[in-house]
């Protein structure tokens, strides 16, 4: 599964992995804004930015082909709009849509595959994002795997019971069966949540999550942010001045 692979990638030990989550988040935001607002000389700029991201992937010791493929998940959505733009006689706009959405996704991929999600969320919390929201996101991420597995069992059971899905135009019985299956999945998820809460209380939970890690924003992180700013913004200024 996608998130399991990312989880493994994110626990590497490269210099990029070791940077503070805040530093990487800021760098990615700068990148996204510089890319998103670009208009002139888009093609050379996007090639240059692709180079920067590829260098980051290699520096982080991640498999580059797999990473490039993973970021392509945005392309089906983008392709529809790009095709419309092409048909409307705007090839540059089509290229910009494809380039911007792909490079943006790749940049986010580099961020999450060099930063374990809990660390990333911790960084966001220290940047002022509401803690409650981040805790919900953390539990969501943790239980994605457990609940998805149950859903897969249910899907298999449904298919075994109802055979193929091609018979009638509107099968109320099958529709209802799928509804009931989801009702049961809902009830089970609810029971999981209660069980988790009991287990938390049993281990002395008093309403606040305390964590072991307390990574500090060091000099190397400040340097990293500065370097990212100079490279990303400088590259764009240079490309636009030349072309």
């Amino acid at each position: 599964m996608h998130h399991v692979v990312l989880d493994r990638w994110s626990r590497g030990g490269s210099a990029l992995h070791r940077r503070d989550a805040r530093a990487k988040t800021i760098a990615v935001l700068v990148f996204l804004i510089a890319l998103g607002t670009a208009q002139r000389a888009f093609l050379p700029l996007s090639l240059f930015y692709l180079g920067i991201l590829a260098a980051a992937i290699l520096a982080a010791g991640l498999p580059i082909v797999a990473a490039l493929k993973r970021a392509a998940v945005v392309l089906p959505f983008t392709a529809v709009f790009a095709a419309i733009s092409l048909a409307a006689g705007e090839p540059m706009r089509a290229a910009a849509l494809v380039g911007k959405s792909y490079l943006s996704a790749l940049a986010v991929l580099v961020l999450v595959s060099t930063t374990p999600l809990p660390e990333l969320l911790g960084g966001l919390e220290r940047m002022g994002v509401p803690r409650y929201l981040l805790m919900v996101a953390q539990f969501l991420y943790r239980y994605l795997f457990v609940i998805s597995e149950e859903a897969q069992h249910m899907r298999a059971a449904l298919q075994a019971k109802s055979g193929t899905l091609k018979r009638t135009l509107w099968d109320r019985a099958k529709f209802g069966a799928a509804g009931r299956a989801l009702g049961v999945l809902f009830a089970r998820s609810y029971a999981h949540a209660e069980g988790i809460h009991q287990a938390m209380l049993a281990r002395g939970f008093q309403g606040h999550f305390l964590t072991l890690s307390g990574r500090a924003f060091g000099r190397a992180d400040a340097f990293f942010v500065a370097a990212a700013l100079v490279i990303v913004v400088g590259a764009r200024a240079a490309v636009e001045a030349w072309i």
């Binding site: 999981h192 988790i196 009991q198 287990a199 938390m200 002395g204 305390l210 964590t211 072991l212």
Partner: peptide
């Protein structure tokens, strides 16, 4: 699964 909710094994054991 209900008892292990922290992101890593070490953090989970340190929860208590």
């Amino acid at each position: 699964d209900n008892q292990l909710f922290m992101p890593t094994v070490l953090e989970d054991v340190a929860f208590g």
